[in-house]
Design a protein around this nucleic acid. Structure first.
Length: 297
DNA sequence: CTCCAGGCGTTCC
DNA sequence: GGAACGCATGGA
């Protein structure tokens, strides 16, 4: 495994020696809703109550603007899965797919989205985000999450690359959303999801569901716990486990992934045989279907 | 205008 | 147990 080199300057971290990493693909594969490409050619957004801007000037180099050394080591390194060996992960996935994949679809998918990393996002934000995502489209999901944050998230000031001071909003806490109430959440055009978001917020705020405790449960028990929340089914729970709790073995199946499975693996693919990186494999397939075989959206 | 979106809960057989 | 249907809204 090639190892990365980390250097720190005031307000930024520079990582070199990267492979299997493409910041555009990371934030364009449908796992995260608060980051967007900026005019300067980077990708900026908010997570962990901080505004951050990522830039990849060369294939092996990542610059994280707005990151102290401490934040890099505690937050961003883990968030971006820079501590994982994706070369080895891809090899493992290829091996596990071999018995099922005569056409080599997974290899084509790993070629196409080879720079994807499955992020390790904040569990509560991930839970809300994927509740919002149900029967919804990407632009609108992002819009609703931005609206929730601006209305009920904690405000903080920060500076953009251009040097202007702006006010940013963290993702709202469960307490803030529970206190706001279902009607207020509905007023933000969340539609039928308002009652689901509110139910999640209430349960977490009241301690009925302890996400830190859920994080320690075996996967199937963790899923069952999450599915006590109204509006959380197997798909939302799977996404929370994969993108929020780093359970890379969890394989969320949605309409697009189901389409891939039916198309390329009509009856032979056994998801349970795909091993501990099945969820990462799923993300490669999702991205591949979206941009290559299934057209763009 | 119509169709549909990284689903889920309910209802019906 | 599992197939249909409604759901709020707005993007395409």
């Amino acid at each position: 495994m090639s190892s990365i080199i980390e250097k720190f300057e005031p307000g930024k971290a520079v990582v070199t020696g990267l492979s299997d990493f493409d910041i555009t693909q990371v934030f364009d594969c449908g796992q995260c809703f608060r980051f967007d490409p900026d005019p300067e050619g980077g990708i900026s957004g908010i997570a962990f109550g901080r505004r951050v801007r990522f830039e990849q000037p060369q294939a092996d180099t990542l610059v994280i603007h707005g990151a102290s050394r401490d934040d890099y080591e505690r937050i961003w390194k883990r968030y971006l899965a820079l501590d994982e060996d994706y070369g080895a992960i891809k090899a493992d996935i290829a091996e596990k797919f071999t018995p099922f994949d005569k056409a080599g679809i997974i290899c084509a998918a790993m070629e196409r989205g080879g720079g994807i990393r499955v992020l390790r996002q904040e569990p509560w934000e991930t839970l809300c985000s994927f509740i919002v995502s149900q029967n919804n489209n990407m632009p609108r999901i992002k819009k609703i999450i931005a609206a929730l944050s601006e209305a009920y998230g904690e405000k903080f000031e920060c500076k953009t690359e251009a040097g202007e001071r702006i006010v940013c909003s963290a993702f709202p806490t469960p307490e803030a959303l529970a206190e706001a109430g279902e009607q207020a959440i509905y007023a933000l055009r969340t539609g039928f999801r308002a009652k689901y978001i509110f139910d999640a917020a209430r349960r977490v705020a009241e301690g009925e569901i302890d996400l830190e405790a859920v994080a320690k449960l075996p996967t199937s028990e963790a899923a069952a716990e999450l599915m006590k929340i109204k509006g959380v089914g197997i798909k939302v729970a799977s996404c929370v486990l994969l993108f929020g709790f780093g359970r890379t073995e969890v394989f969320p199946v949605d309409v697009w992934v189901r389409r891939v499975l039916e198309k390329y693996y009509p009856d032979s693919l056994d998801i349970s045989a795909l091993g501990r990186y099945a969820g990462i494999a799923q993300q490669y397939l999702f991205y591949y279907e979206r941009y290559t075989a299934g057209g763009t959206r």
